[in-house]
Design a protein around this nucleic acid. Structure first.
Lengths: 127, 127
DNA sequence: CCTTGCCTTGACGTCGGCGGCAACGTTTAC
DNA sequence: GTAAACGTTGCCGCCGACGTCAAGGCAAGG
């Protein structure tokens, strides 16, 4: 399979595939003319990468999942390293959720105060 | 007040202050030697900017608050435009919170499945 | 032969809020 | 006179996942 076909079948672009390879996530044999030639199994790998990116993982966090797939597992999630990354990401998401809900409360009170002070404009000394 | 003093008093850097001015948020008179000269009131403006940035606003969203302060209000929040931006940001934060909690659930189930399949390794045909 | 459509590598642009450096002018102090 | 400590403008770097050329090689068909 050439890069164009893999790009189309995986719903990506040739640019992305070359980038992922440059980042050490994808592998390709080279034909005699220098073209990249992909196994069918790489399609699965690309789908895994896309799914993880869509879930907010960075490319650097993805290698364990790819390695897990290449090791013959049906899912990239089941290996210890992958589980560790999943746990870490879950913790990050929780932390982010905490920050956001704090921020949300702050915004709500800020908004409430602003609206209150507009209902009583220039209560004392607003020029 | 020169830029260095304003930077120190506001806990920022001269670099930031010049950047904010370039983005149209700060104003400064120029002395005969070309140095920026700030009113005392600009300190308040800088503090407002920093607070908003810390709350996740972008520089482009901040002008209404600055204008509100310059109009003589004690708070930058009370003007209609500011309130509109606050509402919009609150909505964005809510949307973000929704996405994150959805993602959190996805991660949790993914993690659960991964751990389950490791407790029953190679249930059938794991090579 | 020429076009069309693949493929290759490499380099630069994007967004945003800065940091850091260069190269230079001004003021103050010794 | 000179050195230090200010100020000025302007440009490049950073992060990260790409898009977008540029300039060329290779294959297939008229």
């Amino acid at each position: 399979m050439l890069i164009g076909e893999l790009a189309e079948r995986s719903g990506t672009t040739t640019r992305m595939l070359r980038y992922y390879e440059q980042q050490g996530l994808l592998r390709a044999r080279r034909s005699s003319n220098g073209y990249r030639s992909y196994d069918e199994s790489e399609l699965r790998v690309v789908e895994e990468i896309r799914a993880l990116l869509a879930s907010g993982f960075g490319l650097q966090e993805i290698p364990p999942f790819v390695a897990c797939l290449r090791a013959g597992n049906a899912s990239g999630d089941v290996c210890p390293d992958s589980v560790a990354v999943l746990r870490r990401k879950l913790a990050e998401v929780d932390a982010h959720l905490g920050q956001l809900s704090t921020l949300r409360e702050q915004l709500r009170s800020q908004l409430t105060k602003a609206i209150e002070s507009r209902e009583e404009p220039c209560h004392r000394g607003c020029q």
